[in-house]
């Protein structure tokens, strides 16, 4: 459904963020994108909806070629791609309901949105989404009054109101504690299954990626170095993605990730703080 062909991004500073990345994501597949900081994960996600303009290559979303669209056509294409952000990216001073309704902006005119005159079915859909993520009592609360996990759920509801075909998820759990991280990832996974949505989730936490993704792509220095199933991920491949020397110092978490999923699952629940300690060791390379 989403196909990237030879996608390359060079920043004006000369840094190469992505080099000839090609991949295909079928409908309903949840893909986790892992890799060290600066590997180009965020750039890749932002190239798909052209928040960052790719330098070369093609992006095709259900037969629409995205890189050549005019700005008007691009807006129509962006409606089909919901995006979820690391720092939630809510509008702090607007209410929860207004934040969710902002997902409908691509479908409505300026004055209607400015005067908050949204069509009745859209408002009730927004309400149902808030119910689905468990936040309907808070519709009139301002976004900055919510906790981190609640805010991220508002962000998810906003993305879903676009009725997207694919979710672009940028570090959804980086600002959350381990328990909330799992809840958010589970929610995203469930919603993708309910709506047959594809998703690209760019994530630092390898354990979470293995738990909730159908497929894992490892990115290093702007190139795909691994593309496979979660249980194919072993020490050798992690070394390929994250690098040799630093990987050796993180021997213990590596062993844990290697162990079977059940074990990781219980460990996260029983020793949340321990996991949090192990995460930077994996991601900080």
């Amino acid at each position: 459904m989403l196909t990237l062909t030879d996608l390359t991004k060079r920043y004006s500073t000369g840094d190469r963020a992505l080099t000839q990345v090609s991949l295909h994501i079928p409908e309903g597949q949840v893909v986790a994108l892992i890799g060290p900081s600066g590997a180009g994960k965020s750039t890749l996600i932002r190239c798909v909806n052209r928040l960052v303009e790719p330098t070369e290559g093609r992006i095709t979303l259900s037969n629409t070629e995205l890189t050549s669209l005019s700005s008007r056509q691009l807006r129509c294409a962006r409606r089909r791609m919901g995006m979820i952000f690391q720092e939630y990216a809510l509008i702090d001073r607007l209410t929860v309901m207004e934040n969710v309704l902002s997902g409908y902006l691509g479908y409505t005119g300026f004055w209607r949105s400015f005067l908050r005159r949204y069509p009745q079915p859209v408002v009730s859909e927004a309400f149902r989404l808030l119910q689905r993520v468990g936040l309907e009592p808070f519709i009139d609360k301002r976004a900055d009054e919510l906790s981190g996990g609640q805010r991220q759920r508002v962000g998810i509801a906003r993305a879903l109101l676009q009725s997207p075909e694919i979710l672009l998820v940028d570090e959804p759990t980086a600002s959350l504690d381990p328990k909330t991280s799992r809840q958010i990832m589970r929610l995203i996974k469930e919603l993708c299954a309910e709506r047959r949505l594809a998703a690209i989730i760019n994530i630092h936490d390898v354990a979470l990626a293995q738990l909730f993704a159908d497929r894992i792509i490892g990115l290093r220095a702007g190139e795909i170095v691994f593309d496979g199933l979660p249980d194919q991920l072993d020490a050798e491949i992690l070394t390929r993605i994250y690098g040799e020397e630093d990987w050796n110092t993180a021997a213990e978490p590596e062993a844990e990730i290697e162990s079977d999923l059940e074990a990781v699952d219980t460990r996260v629940q029983t020793d949340a703080a321990g996991l949090k300690r192990s995460v930077p060791a994996v991601g900080a390379v």
Partner: peptide, 13 residues
Amino acid sequence: PTPVEAIAATGAS
């Protein structure tokens, strides 16, 4: 800048 980016990503004008 991120909330601005988020609104642009919804396809807003």
